[in-house]
């Protein structure tokens, strides 16, 4: 397959899970989940991965970024843009190392940006740095979208590194709307003239009506399916495709029956769903890219295959992304 200079694709993809994990019984004993282990198991969950002092979020972010750059064959000086993506506000601030200097009232602590720290830690000296947030589990999708837009708009930029990191506070509940939540990070390099995972289209529906997830959890659960169906159908229509034209659907780590239902709703055959990893839970920003990395590693899909990614994020936004492998 030949690449066109105007093509934008994902040249590097990586997902990282912390090695430490707790199974459902341990999570229940720790009081970190509220549903029974049997119910969570029926939803396909087995464990939650957790960062700790031995493997802090900063290490995980570095590993994800390095792995993505390695996958893309990039050196640090070749990264033109760095986009940090975190759904939760505290993950936009760097927790690496103790606070230093004088900071009356702690105001300066709020400017210890994770994105800037990562640029420095990786020697991405040529990169312009920014961050995206406030899109829940779709935040990494927003990062990719911003990266692609920059590459298309500014011809001097070739490669954008997007790094998504989300870690729940220590001791925080690990169950959200019947999903077991893991800590994780991911890195994706978006490159101009890249024919792998070529960007074909993107569709998003944002519904601020559901802005407060604590107040409208049931409404969100109910809205999930019809809106997900709507956003995928919108993307297919924009691309002139039918459901059967999708070769692979990259799963997320949310509860498994929801994927079975969604595929039936949209009319995509269930054998197109890829979730070729043991259950790692739902990682907020990184699910799709953990699976996409594995899909690429296995090398079992043909060039030219159409790959669909879908995810939902609090806020609320429903996003679907279509790539050509």
């Amino acid at each position: 397959m030949t690449s066109h200079p105007e093509d934008v694709g994902l040249s590097g993809v990586a997902g990282i899970l912390p090695p430490r994990h707790q199974d459902l019984t341990e999570l229940t004993a720790s009081g970190l989940v509220s549903s029974s282990p049997a119910a969570l198991s029926a939803f396909g969950f087995e464990r939650a991965h957790l960062c700790d002092a031995t493997y802090p979020p900063s290490e995980m972010a570095l590993d994800a970024a390095r792995a993505a750059m390695s996958d893309a064959g990039l050196q640090p000086h070749e990264v033109d843009v760095l986009v940090w993506a975190s759904a939760r506000p505290e993950n936009h601030l760097c927790a690496a190392g103790p606070a230093t200097g004088t900071d009356a009232g702690g105001v300066m602590q709020g400017f210890r940006y994770s994105s800037a720290w990562l640029q420095n830690a990786l020697d991405l000296h040529n990169a312009e740095v920014m961050a995206v947030g406030q899109q829940g589990c779709t935040t990494m999708f927003a990062a990719l979208r911003v990266a692609r837009a920059i590459l298309l708009a500014e011809p001097g930029r070739e490669h954008a590194l997007c790094v998504g990191v989300d870690v729940l506070p220590a001791g925080a509940p690990r169950e959200i709307l019947y999903n077991v939540v893991s800590d994780a990070a991911c890195g994706v390099v978006v490159s101009r003239g890249c024919a792998t995972e070529k960007w074909l289209g993107y569709s998003q529906l944002s519904r601020g009506y559901y802005w407060d997830p604590a107040a409208c959890g049931p409404e969100i659960v109910a809205a999930y399916f019809p809106t997900a169906k709507g956003v995928i159908e919108q993307l297919l229509a924009e691309q002139g495709l039918r459901p059967g034209d999708i070769d692979v659907v990259v799963a997320t780590g949310v509860n498994r029956p929801s994927w079975d239902i969604l595929l039936r709703l949209v009319g995509i055959p269930e054998d197109r769903l890829f979730r070729g990893l043991p259950s790692f839970g739902h990682t907020i920003t990184s699910d799709s890219f953990l699976y996409l990395e594995e899909l690429r590693r296995l090398g079992q899909i043909e060039r030219g295959s159409r790959v669909l990614l879908f995810t939902y994020g609090f806020g609320s936004s429903w996003c679907s992304l279509l790539l050509e492998h």
Binding site: S35, A39, F43, P257, I261
Partner: peptide, 10 residues
């Protein structure tokens, strides 16, 4: 499938 999912969730 949806009904079963609701039942499983409690």
């Amino acid at each position: 499938l949806f009904e079963r999912s609701v039942a499983q969730s409690g």
